[in-house]
């Protein structure tokens, strides 16, 4: 099992007292499989994704990633984990505006110490970015930006891809095209995919789906 969550609790402090965002979450994901995480706004989907990525820590429970419980790891270890194991795709793309497309694509792989120019070339071609490698993010369309973000994540060949509403900022046609590409490339790399989405239509295209409601899996 690549990913296993056990009894995860997460609270956020609010003016009216602590808000129980995640309540006893148990979840697992095998290598090479994809899982859709659906739920209403504020149900805790993104929070769960951030916990898995080691960007935030739970108040209780265990998160085993590749056999290691990442809860309680220090900042440096978590950063190393993100470099080595995890790839993130965000709704806002979050490209690095000061780097051109080629540098953005290669950035995470180089950061992880796994640069692979040949694989990058393949990715750029498959993602339709070969003609825009010298452009900067601000010069790209939203669809192109999200393809760069996907390419950046997959360039490092992560074992786990975490995607937070990856097509949320795109129109339906573009979103579908981008998702197709992502799913096929993830499958080719053998990575597992955990994707947060609002859309039942998109969720149905993954191997499995779970629904989060008021902090609980239903």
């Amino acid at each position: 099992m690549l990913l296993r969550l056990h009894q995860i609790d997460k609270f956020y402090p609010t003016g009216e007292g602590p808000l129980h965002v995640l309540n006893g979450i148990d979840l697992s994901l095998e290598a090479g499989k994809s899982l859709a995480l659906t739920g209403e706004s504020g149900s805790g989907k993104s929070t769960l994704l951030h916990l898995v990525a080691g960007l935030d820590s739970p108040d209780a429970g265990e998160i085993h990633l590749g056999g290691t419980n990442i809860v309680g790891l220090n900042d440096t270890a978590l950063a190393a984990l993100r470099r080595a194991t995890v790839g993130l795709v965000f709704q806002q793309f979050n490209l690095i505006p000061s780097l051109d497309v080629a540098a953005n694509l290669a950035f995470q792989a180089r950061l992880a110490g796994r640069p692979d120019p040949a694989w990058l070339k393949v990715l750029a071609k498959r993602l339709g970015l070969a003609q825009v490698l010298t452009r900067y993010p601000e010069q790209l369309s939203a669809g192109q930006q999200q393809r760069v973000a996907i390419g950046r994540t997959l360039a490092a060949r992560p074992r786990l891809v975490l995607a937070d509403e990856p097509t949320g900022n795109l129109d339906e046609a573009t979103g579908d095209a981008v998702l197709d590409l992502m799913l096929s490339l993830v499958a080719e790399t053998g990575a597992a995919l955990l994707m947060v989405t609002h859309s039942n239509r998109l969720a149905n295209r993954l191997n499995a789906r779970v629904h989060l409601h008021a902090g609980r899996l239903v």
Binding site: D75, N94, P97
Partner: peptide
Amino acid sequence: PQLAPVWAMGLT
């Protein structure tokens, strides 16, 4: 917005 992605990709 410029620093957060770099942090997310593995920098402390």
